[in-house]
């Protein structure tokens, strides 16, 4: 999605990227929301958010199942769902802009389709797990939004977005670029097929695959250790090595300086107390000394 913004320029031909990103943002909102709500509905049903605890849920959660499937198809860019249209336009924009970006985007699209359907097959197909109590469909308050969003995911791709949103208020026509559309659908379908082969039925294939990929699989399994890195950065670096010194510096140096002005003033006040001795001869001495000092001031100035 951010990619789209990245390839977008402003105005003219280049405005395509801008429009595409807005369009994708819009459709993305639909199906991503749908996915999250669907996930929520599943978690609600099985009281877990680990995929190992799920399987064969299509029987128990028919509505969730269908809507989730729609969301997955949309995100994989299968026509005629909305994701297809918006993603297509991003790819077109990317192609205009930079071939390498297009390639990356292209592969990512395939991966997306793969992991989404891996999720889908794992959760809704596969074999039943030992549920503590039989999962049941979520109440209407949860399914109605699901259905509405599914509806939107299907049809929002037909909105003539390119004439509504432009970066320079100039409409420009886009046509289906089949040279881009067909490969992109194909790679989506490929991803789905991979997932189907690997995860539709319980099989050893994924195990083998994961072993053959070795480190990469472990790394991906752990989300490339992003969480750990994040925690390391916040907890260790920001907290301990930046915030703590900053807080200390603020307390002791900056504030210490401000308080120090006050303390020094008090100290000086204490030091000069001796001048006020109460003895009249000292006062007389200071008086005359003061007059002489004034004379000095006058001479010097």
């Amino acid at each position: 999605m951010m990619l789209a913004l990245g390839v977008s320029g402003y105005g003219g031909e280049e405005g395509l990227g801008y429009m595409a990103s807005m369009f994708h943002l819009f459709t993305h909102a639909m199906f991503k929301a749908l996915l999250f709500l669907g996930a929520g509905s599943i978690i609600h049903a099985v009281h877990s958010n680990l995929m190992q605890d799920m399987g064969g849920l299509r029987k128990y959660l028919p509505i969730t199942h269908i809507t989730f499937l729609i969301a997955c198809l949309t995100i994989s860019g299968v026509p005629p769902f909305s994701g297809f249209f918006s993603k297509d336009e991003i790819l077109v924009a990317a192609l205009h802009h930079n071939k390498l970006l297009f390639a990356v985007e292209f592969i990512v699209a395939g991966l997306t389709a793969f992991y989404m359907f891996r999720l889908y097959f794992n959760v809704f197909w596969g074999k039943d797990r030992h549920y503590h109590h039989t999962p049941h469909e979520s109440p209407l308050t949860m399914t109605i939004p699901l259905m509405f969003l599914a509806f939107a995911s299907i049809f929002s791709g037909f909105i003539p977005f390119h004439s509504l949103v432009t970066s320079d208020k100039m409409h420009f026509a886009t046509e289906m670029n089949f040279a881009v559309a067909i490969p992109s659908v194909l790679i989506g379908l490929l991803g789905i097929a991979m997932a189907w082969i690997l995860y539709k039925k319980e099989s050893v294939a994924p195990e083998k695959l994961s072993k053959s990929f070795g480190i990469l699989y472990t790394a991906t399994y752990n989300k490339f250790y992003f969480d750990e890195i994040y925690l390391f950065v916040t907890k260790k670096i920001i907290f301990n090595y930046i915030s703590r010194p900053v807080a200390w510096f603020d307390r002791h140096i900056v504030d210490g300086f401000m308080v120090g002005i006050g303390t020094v003033t008090e100290k000086v006040s204490y030091r000069i107390k001796g001048m006020q001795s109460g003895q009249l001869q000292h006062y007389a001495f200071m008086f005359v000394a003061g007059a002489l000092a004034l004379a000095l001031v006058m001479i010097l100035m």
Binding site: I238, F239, I242, S243, V246, A247, D250
Partner: peptide, 8 residues
């Protein structure tokens, strides 16, 4: 600085 200060 204020933001970092707030964290601690």
């Amino acid at each position: 600085y204020g933001a970092f200060g707030a964290i601690w």
